[in-house]
Each structure stands twice: as structure tokens, then as C-alpha cells.
Amino acid sequence: MARTSETPDEKAPRRSRPIRVAEAIKEWVVEQGLQPGDRLPGETEMIARFGMSKGTIREAMRLLQAQGLVETKTGPGGGSFVGEVSTERAHALLANYFYFRDISIADIYQLRVALEPEVAAAMAGRLSPERLAELRSIIDDYAEPATDPEDERRQHVASLHFHARLASFADNALLGFIIGFMSQILADLTVYRQLYAAPNVELWRTGRQHQLDLLDAMERGDAKAARSIMRSHMEMAWRMMEDQQAVVMKRFMAH
């Protein structure tokens, strides 16, 4: 029988029984070496294995299902299976944590300036022709300057997708996830703070050229140039995003 007990800790709040059972099920899945798509034991076996009531087991499974760690299928061949949390779902869950926290442009770019130049340098000379072509095709999506605020917002989101996609090619999956998450919340900020009240041709032109130069440096394997270009790109974007935010706030205060 899997253990569901835990070492007492007066400083830590005691977790509910379904939460403790859900943690025990996760531990058991890891111990058994189960992979996404593998079938989990039925409810009767779960009750016997973990020594808990039907209601507790069902609540624990619902918790795991809400987390994306368990998938339930009905019909012939149905049952409960090990789930795999997608990057999109993980980003959304993490975004919920920051929902009521005042994340600023500076908070995001402080991390971007620290991480993205090193990722670009590390991947210089290591991207396949197919991946380079994919990144160039993303840049082609904003080959012309925006004609209105909505078009500029769309182009900015596409540009952030370029950075997220580039980071996803990194060997370090954690770095790729973090950079992708920062791109996502930055895209969200542009929407609810309305940071694109007017097209910014300078940001488009300079940013796009940075990205083209970056891919050229990475294609020829020039890590030093890739790092320098990405850093300049991040610093320029940081400055111009904060300037744009100041313009929007000034307009808002005027009303």
C-alpha cells in the first residue's frame, strides 16, 4: 500500500486527505515509470492500493484531472490514463498565479535581458535549415509596418511568438519554458493595458532588423554577435515599451 502520511510540521498547514492522496498517486506513477497515455488502475484497485474511501479516491482523481495529470475517457477502452500537461496549459496555470500581482514591463524585461542573449548565443550554429526557415517565416508575417493599432498589436504578438519559438529550440527545456511564458504574459499586457494605441514604426523597423540580423549571426555560428544583437534588441524593446506605456497612461489620466 502506498504511503499517504506525511511528517508533521506545525508551521505548515495540514493538507486535506484528497490532496495527500493525489500526491501519493503522483509519486506512485513516477515509481512505476508510467508515461503519458498509460492506463491507471481502476477505482477498486485504487481504493485497495491507497487504503482510502471511494469518495476520497474520486476527489483525488478529480484534482489530478484538473491539473491535467490524469485524463478520463469514456466508452469502450475507456478509463483513467496518465495525462501530459501541455506548454499552453502550464503557461495558463502559472499566469493565474501572477494574475493579481502587479507585473511590470521592467519585471519582464529584466529577465529577458538576462536570459535571451545567452540562449541565442548557445544556439548559434546549431539551428537546422528547417528551423531557421520557420523563424524567418514568422518574421515575414510582419514584413510591412502596421497601419492601425490592432494591426500593430497583432504584429507584436507575432514577434513575441518568434522569441518563444526560438527559445523552444534550446536544449534547456526550463529556459525555453520560462522565455515562452514571459512572451505570453507580455502579449497579454499589450491587450489589457492597451499599449498599442498608435503604430510605432520605429519599434517595428528596428526590432525586425534585429531579428533578421540575429538569424544571420546564428546561421553562421557567430555566438558573440548573436548575444550582442539579442541584448540590443531586448534593451531597445524594453525602452520603447515603457515609453509607449507612459504615453498610454498620460492619455488615460487626461480623461
Rank of each mutant, 00 (worst) to 15 (best):
S104G: 06
A167V: 05
R154E: 09
R205I: 02
Y97S: 08
W238V: 03
E242M: 08
I47G: 00
R126Q: 15
R220S: 04
E242P: 00
A187V: 02
A90E: 09
A246Q: 09
D213G: 04
D9V: 04
R49Q: 13
T56E: 05
I108C: 12
M234G: 03
L189Y: 07
R205D: 12
S53H: 08
D140S: 15
G42I: 02
Q194N: 13
A226R: 12
T147W: 07
R165L: 06
M241S: 12
Y99H: 15
G33W: 08
S86A: 02
S5Q: 12
Q244V: 05
P8C: 02
L63T: 07
M249I: 13
Q65N: 10
Q67I: 00
V29N: 10
M234D: 13
R154W: 06
R15G: 00
E144A: 08
L195Y: 12
F98N: 04
L127G: 06
I19W: 13
D222R: 01
E59Y: 03
D216K: 03
M123W: 00
Q110S: 14
P13F: 07
Y192D: 15
E219Q: 15
A226C: 07
L175D: 07
A22L: 01
A48P: 03
S159T: 13
R89S: 06
S80N: 15
V247R: 13
L214H: 03
L189D: 05
Q245F: 08
M230I: 01
G55D: 15
G79L: 02
A124E: 10
A254N: 05
Q35T: 15
L214I: 03
L69D: 08
P129I: 00
I19C: 08
L111M: 13
I138P: 01
A66Q: 11
V82C: 03
A226W: 03
I25N: 05
A66F: 04
E10T: 13
K26H: 02
R62A: 09
T206I: 12
T87A: 10
H233K: 11
R49Y: 05
D171Y: 11
G207S: 06
A60R: 12
Q194D: 14
A246W: 09
